[in-house]
Nucleic acid binder design. Structure first.
Length: 516
RNA sequence: GGGUCGCUAGCUCAGCGGUAGAGCACUCGGCUUUUAACCGAUUAGUCCUGAGUUCGAAUCUCAGGCGACCCA
């Protein structure tokens, strides 16, 4: 069963006997492969360049033909071919050694028999472009850096099994340039976002992940426990309430980009831990936050994709500001003809929805909640191009301030792109008395069985009593934005290690040779 | 939570009631211009798990596990 592994362990022992263990200490590459490919693009077929280089990486493929062999060596920047000639390698060994004293190995027989696809090796040699036009390192000396004991995925099909791609992401990264590019781009996006905010004097301040009162969103938390204090704690479901405390404290522009945890289902759009950025700007309202959202996302897109027009799953998406804006009432009326301003009772609204074939769940116990239901059922999926949906019902927005001119509504928007909620923002509620009533109403719902309703955070209310300036607040779902900008259909494609059920391995039969 | 599909050699898959198969990988042999190298030989399996139907099950039925997609 593990014959291949035994064979490779045997080769590791053979390397040790040759004075070079299978796990080296260090190596000094002179170049990365992409730089070599670029710098020597002018080298003609069949020509050699008398420049000694040292490169390190993973052996991806091996082609051995008698007294000549070709390996493909890949480092982080990409592949380069190794040209292995018996007459060169069996000559006098070069006077070079690793820092830890390991002698360079020379002989052709050794490199072709002791090096497998998947091993990490370092080589020295000169440059040569083969007759077939492939830039190659003509190897004069080599070192085993790390002997691999497991085979690489099929070199032609790659990792076709999506489950293995998620469970063993390292294999996916080794064989899939596309996956590497996704995570590179994710890193650049996060970096560009921080840079954009930092340049505008926003301070990133870290707030607690472990909290005794979960708040800032409607979601079920993960529960945990602090032993020394014998204290039940939950993982944060939002960063909102602590960032607002910082605004109370006098920081006028703050943000936090970090991990959020919500104890909910898994889908192509949901992972129980995900990344958000929440941004708060004193003396601003939700219209300012709309402008900020457009500018921030357009800027990041431009930097990462080179344009504000992108293609997502075959559909062209134009992120060039300004974006479409519409109130929830307008959009629902356009989609299904129901004017929710006209309804004076829940029953009336529910009956009108039923007449249109829409569902009116019992948990939606007010006209406002039914409006939101109608929105989700008739509008949301069709908001493909970026759209700000504004002016939400107060019942579903316990942290947003009342609308300046529309009773029963709040100053809030959500951003939808490709039918997905991508950002959420308010003119923040600064009135502590109103805020207390809103949170107590939430708590009542919670007592009535709504597990996603928030509790009352007394310390947060106290902070509001000290006085929070008028403030605009914004949250952006980073994972969904990464999906958009990397053309990824599933959130699992943009999270390096998505949550999966633990793999079941039959007892006494460890799969993949993991030690017990 | 509901539905559909998948799970067979290390990898990618075929087989769909009658001796467990192919390509690649591995091992051995040959080969100095390959790049899915090629040629020859060998090795490799709890057909996801359990129960049932049957003379006989990878194949049919039921239950369970894990995953994917769609819906809520």
């Amino acid at each position: 069963m593990s014959e291949l592994r035994e064979t490779r362990l045997e080769k590791a022992r053979a390397l040790a006997e040759l004075g070079q263990g299978p796990y080296a200490l260090r190596f000094d590459p002179s170049h990365r492969t992409a730089a070599l490919q670029q710098d020597h693009a002018d080298l003609a077929k069949g020509e050699e360049r008398d420049l000694e280089v040292a490169v390190a990486g993973r052996v991806m493929t091996r082609r051995v033909m008698g007294k000549l062999a070709f390996f493909t060596l890949a480092d982080e920047t990409g592949p380069i071919q190794l040209y292995l000639e018996k007459s060169t390698l069996d000559g006098p060994p070069p006077e070079v050694a690793l820092a830890d004293g390991a002698a360079a190995l020379g002989s052709y027989a050794q490199i072709t028999s002791l090096v497998d696809a998947g091993d990490l090796i370092g080589v020295r040699g000169t440059l040569r472009r083969t007759d077939r036009g492939e830039l190659s390192v003509k190897v004069t000396a080599w070192w085993m850096l790390t002997k691999g004991l497991q085979p690489l995925p099929d070199k032609w099909h790659g990792l076709a099994d999506v489950e293995t791609r998620y469970r063993q992401r390292y294999l996916d990264l080794i064989v899939s340039p596309q996956t590497r590019e996704t995570f590179r781009r994710r890193a650049r996006m996060v970096s560009a976002m921080r840079r954009w905010l930092d340049e505008r004097d926003f301070l990133e301040i870290e707030t607690p992940v472990l909290q005794s009162v979960p708040g800032g969103a409607d979601a079920r938390p993960f529960e945990t426990h602090h032993n020394a204090l014998d204290l039940p704690l939950t993982l944060r479901i939002a960063t909102e309430l602590h960032l607002k405390r910082l605004v109370v404290g006098g920081f006028e522009r703050v943000y936090e980009l970090g991990r959020i945890f919500r104890n909910e289902g898994i889908s192509t759009r949901h992972n129980p831990e995900f990344t958000s950025v929440e941004i708060y700007q004193a003396y601003a309202d939700y219209t300012d936050m709309m402008d900020l959202t457009e500018q921030l996302i357009a800027s990041v897109c431009e930097q990462v994709c080179g344009s504000t027009t992108i293609t997502y799953q075959g559909t062209e998406i134009d992120l060039t500001p300004p974006w479409r804006r519409g109130t929830m009432h307008e959009l629902v009326e356009q989609a299904c003809g129901l004017d929710f301003n006209a309804f004076t009772s829940r029953e009336e609204a529910a009956a009108a929805m039923a007449a249109k074939g829409l569902e009116a769940p019992a948990l939606a116990d007010s006209v406002g909640r039914l409006l939101n239901e109608a929105f989700e059922q008739t509008v949301e999926a069709d908001l493909i191009q970026p759209t700000f949906v504004t002016d939400y019902p107060v019942e579903i927005s316990p942290l947003a301030r009342n609308h300046r001119s529309k009773p029963g509504l709040v100053e809030r928007f959500e951003l939808f792109i490709v039918g997905r909620e991508t950002a959420n923002a308010f003119s923040e509620l600064t009135d502590p008395v109103d805020q207390r009533q809103r949170l107590e109403a939430q708590q009542d719902r919670r007592a009535a069985g709504d597990l996603e309703a928030q509790g009352v955070d007394e310390d947060f209310l106290q902070a509001l009593e000290v006085g929070m300036p008028p403030t605009g607040g914004l949250g952006i779902g980073i994972d969904r934005l990464v999906m958009l900008l990397t053309d990824s259909p599933s959130i699992r494609d943009v999270i390096a290690f998505p949550l999966l059920r633990p793999e079941v391995r039959p007892e006494g039969h460890p799969q993949g040779h993991q030690e017990p």
